[in-house]
Design a binder for these strands. Structure first.
Length: 215
DNA sequence: CCACCGATTGCT
DNA sequence: GCAATCGGTGGT
């Protein structure tokens, strides 16, 4: 028997079915928050429309106990937002070329954050394709610099409140438990053995380099 | 003042 | 494998 065609086009998730996460969700250690962020939606209500996707890869950075963290040597002009309240944005400029986006964790002044490394695109695909000058959905948001470019995140949103501002973290009501894969962090020269990179198991939307899989 | 480097990406 | 490209840091 022949399959019937779906009468309705599907996959765009309905923004209004998503629940915006509030400060109690963010108020925890970066290692815990990192894992909790997997499977949640990162959505930016941009001037060009709503863009974003499901968080599939993250890394935790732990403040003054973490040699690889930007906050290791304390607060300065560049990293001040990392010391803000849990649930705020830390957007930093690196390699003279790219921006990366973090979710601030833990108490004010601790300097913990979660680097968002990869998304599965769900919102505003056309806008993101334009921003990235690529039609390949696997090349839109699979990397910390790429996803900031795809979403068109404005660096002025550094320090902004993710619970009320134009960038938000959302949970789908029908979110299933996420299976998590763990590895060492990528692109750092110190603390290379810490197992602080977390990925949604078996997802295809991961950043370029091969993870040193451990657990 | 100069050299180096970074939680990256893309091209050779 | 390496250039792009910029601001901060540390050494001379």
């Amino acid at each position: 028997m022949k399959q019937q065609k779906r009468p309705k086009k599907q996959p765009e998730p309905d923004k209004h079915s998503l629940i915006r996460l509030q400060s109690d969700f963010f108020q925890k250690d970066a290692t815990v928050l990192a894992k909790d962020l997997l499977g949640k939606h990162l959505i930016y209500n941009s001037p060009a429309g709503e863009v974003g996707g499901i968080i599939t890869e993250v890394e935790a950075y732990l403040g003054n106990q973490d040699l690889a963290a930007h906050s290791f040597k304390g607060k300065n002009k560049k990293n001040w937002a990392l010391f803000g309240p849990a649930g705020s944005a830390y957007i930093y400029f690196t390699y003279g070329v790219h921006y990366c986006f973090n979710v601030v964790a833990n108490d004010i002044g601790v300097g913990e954050g979660v680097l968002i490394r990869s998304l599965e695109p769900t919102h505003g695909l056309e806008v993101m394709k334009q921003n990235r000058k690529s039609e390949d959905i696997y090349n839109l948001t699979t990397g910390p610099g790429k996803l900031v470019q795809a979403l068109g995140l404005d660096p002025k949103l550094n320090g902004s409140d993710l619970t009320t501002g134009p960038i938000g973290i959302y949970q789908s009501p029908d979110l299933k438990p996420v299976e998590i894969e763990i590895s060492t962090r990528i692109g750092i020269s110190r603390a290379q053995d810490s197992l602080l990179r977390f990925l949604v198991k078996n997802n295809q939307f991961i950043s370029g380099k091969i993870p040193k899989k451990v657990a």
